[in-house]
Amino acid sequence: MQVEETVEKKYHQNGIFYPSEKVMLDLRDLKKIYPTPKGDYVVLEHLNLQILKEEFVTIIGHSGCGKTTMLSMIAGLNVISGGNISVLGNPIKGPGPDRGVIFQAPSLMPWMTALQNVMLGVNRVFPHATKGQRKDIAKYYLQKVGLELAFNKKAAELSQGEQQRVGIARAFAIKPKVLLLDEPFGMLDSLTRGELQDILIEIWNKEKITAVMITHDVDEAIFLADRVVMMTSGPRAKIGDVLEIAFERPRSRKAVLDHDDYYKYRKHLIDFLEH
């Protein structure tokens, strides 16, 4: 009972405590320990975060603070050392197609075509659909990311940017409840990055699924997010601060940049990071 109370208290302190019917993803008192020969290394501790349905949250923090660890725990690829993660109130058990992941590296199977890569997930998630229907789903999302001319190109023949487009199509095509993005544009040049941000936000506007995205780029964080979550530096990292981004959607890059609040938000984030 004592523990419950302190957890509730922390939520209130951070100003993030939402009614459960609105919450998609709930991280409670999350902890991650990596055992090392010199004793346990605590990466995350007392990490509390609630992410709402249809919300786009970006996470920023210094390198090595445990952002990726947290995301891979949500994905179910990393074992939880303490606390729990639940999706719509159900604690997660390992990875599953209800949580789509877009990795930092495109991670496409290079021996498959773009279409086959997307189909890999679609076949799994829609086993009862006919082959034609599944192909249509895959083709639809590949068209959405602008790859209608590259269905049958081998993944190895695509450029980095195109590969990550396939990664986006693959993630959306399995219709996940939550989309997890681990610095998906970190390896791209800034022009391609801008293009892909537009594509991502366009599909997201349509699908309205909950998205959690790690980024190093402050501008990207503001442009995409409803809320920017800032993590403290590790070890024992937790949520340091949360910033609501009140821009209307759909957003245009120009309108965002011209908005008076933009530099206020930017300053807030940079102050936190340089603190």
Binding site: R99, F103, L120, R124
Partner: peptide, 16 residues
């Protein structure tokens, strides 16, 4: 490991 992670996320069966 990336490929294995993709397989895990997509919950591919052992044969697949």
């Amino acid at each position: 490991k990336d490929y294995i992670n993709v397989a895990k996320v997509l919950k591919l069966g052992p044969l697949q």
